[in-house]
Amino acid sequence: MITIDGKQIKLQIWDTAGQESFRSITRSYYRGAAGALLVYDITRRDTFNHLTTWLEDARQHSNSNMVIMLIGNKSDLESRREVKKEEGEAFAREHGLIFMETSAKTASNVEEAFINTAKEIYEKIQEGVFDINNEANGIKIGPQHAATNSTLAGGQGGQQAGGGCC
């Protein structure tokens, strides 16, 4: 439960598997998700390299308006960093994503990542991009006019699955 703009928003966060073998299963979650968090591990370049395919998958199977957030996780392990922050930023800029670096261990930016995703979705609702009466978007108006979003959180490399449907 978070509050944006004075409105209570309940996030439904689905953790999907990040391993390659579960990719086809993850596809089932794209429909009906309002947002997704694409998570890679800054200490493992291969997870960063896989982003393109995951992003393609997400774009192909989801609602075109789905908010996608790029997350570089494990920012606490600066000494073992393999992917520069600038690279993440560049990738996000290139593909129109929002970028953040987080650390699940120290909880740094984790809350913000979800709140920012929710904010973005909320803005899109305000703009009328999402039809809130269509549940296939993963958004529904709650009993007290509290919106509910389902967000996929999907991660790669098993650290934290990343893919969130709001």
Binding site: S24, I25, R27, S28, R31, G32, H61
Partner: peptide, 9 residues
């Protein structure tokens, strides 16, 4: 069914 895209959906 699980691995076919949108199968379950």
């Amino acid at each position: 069914v699980l691995i076919s895209p949108m199968g379950v959906s």
